[in-house]
């Protein structure tokens, strides 16, 4: 499919470059809707990228490339699981009590109370199972983009945070305009990045930089990211997509088989670390502090909600 127009992203092939535009408001938060369309993109790339020899990915959202995982969706999903699980447990208790009206209402209240007390133990395995499924799916997509046999270029501006940063890190080359800021604020929620970000960042820069970003939650501007080698080119504001497009078109001129061989040589997928990341993420997710931090985040009105 040479053109696609979805709810969260679109693509077209132009001059041998597969151009992918992210356009989900407010800032390309990655939830189930975007994951579904990213899976379609990965299937296309896996199937020859419609003949394209390079890929460009960028955002048309004014606020930035991507603000990362859709934390509101995660928060609402956890709440939904909790309430539905409590209802289910209440129904089971009522059934076992064999009660009938009017005793039923009292038994139901007692059962709901018991369900609330036991909800954490009841719900947590469900949350972990659902999050594990989501992570497996997004890792599969990011692995395809990371190891695609064509050159991939990410054009970044504004907010490039969390999962958005992780998506940008799958690209071979990153071009940023002067407004871009890169951050891994996940520790504010009590978790590590879960979409493969740390292993891919480790591949690009030294561990000291990884620790600084992860353990302080600070963001880096484009110039600093360029100095660290995280970004290949910095442009004036608004000029990054054109610069990235020129880089992609240049790469598209090379022999496809040579490019594929070169990429396998210079860009190994850090498989063991990616698997370890999922295990670490899910282990950290079991900490009750995560749910409380998520609640604080989605209700925060602070100008820097990504910091504790």
């Amino acid at each position: 499919m040479r053109t696609f127009h979805g709810v969260t992203l679109s693509w077209t092939v132009d001059e041998a470059v597969l151009e992918v535009k992210l356009h989900r408001g407010p800032c390309n938060e990655i939830g189930t809707a975007m994951l579904h369309e990213l899976e379609q993109l990965a299937a296309l790339v896996d199937d020859g990228a419609a003949g394209a020899r390079a890929m460009l990915i960028y955002s048309d959202r004014p606020k930035g490339f991507s603000a990362g995982a859709d934390l509101r969706e995660l928060h609402d999903g956890m709440k939904g699981l909790r309430s539905s699980s409590a209802r289910t447990l209440a129904q089971v208790l009522v059934r076992r009590a064999g009660a009938e009206e009017p005793v039923l209402a009292t038994v139901r209240d007692m059962a709901l109370g018991a369900a609330r007390v036991g909800r954490r133990a009841l719900v947590q395995p469900l949350v972990v199972r659902e999050v594990r499924r989501f992570l497996r799916r997004i890792h599969a997509v990011f692995d395809v983009l990371d190891s695609a046999p064509i050159v991939t270029v990410a054009a970044c501006h504004g907010v490039v945070f969390g999962g958005g940063f992780e998506l940008a890190l799958t690209a071979d080359v990153r071009v940023a305009d002067a407004s871009a800021r890169f951050a891994f604020p996940e520790l504010r929620l009590g978790i590590v990045p879960g979409f493969g970000g740390v292993p891919r960042l480790e591949r690009e820069v030294g561990n000291g930089v990884v620790r600084d970003l992860l353990l302080t939650g600070r963001s880096l501007n484009a110039r600093r990211a360029h100095t660290l080698g995280l970004v290949s080119q910095v442009t004036a504001r608004g000029e990054h997509v054109q610069a990235a497009r020129r880089a992609a078109r240049q790469a598209a001129r090379f022999d496809p088989a040579s490019v594929a061989a070169a990429k396998r040589f210079v860009k190994p997928v850090p498989r063991a670390r990616l698997d370890a990341e999922i295990d670490t993420f899910l282990e950290m997710l079991r900490n009750p502090a995560v749910e409380a931090a998520l609640e604080r985040f989605v209700t925060s009105t602070d100008v820097r909600p990504y910091l504790p």
Binding site: S179, R181, N221, R224, L307
Partner: peptide
Amino acid sequence: DSMEAMDLLTALEETFDVEIPDY
């Protein structure tokens, strides 16, 4: 708002040629 705060931080860093951790 939070997005403008980030943009302002970048502007501060550009204007004064410094690096300021968000925290």
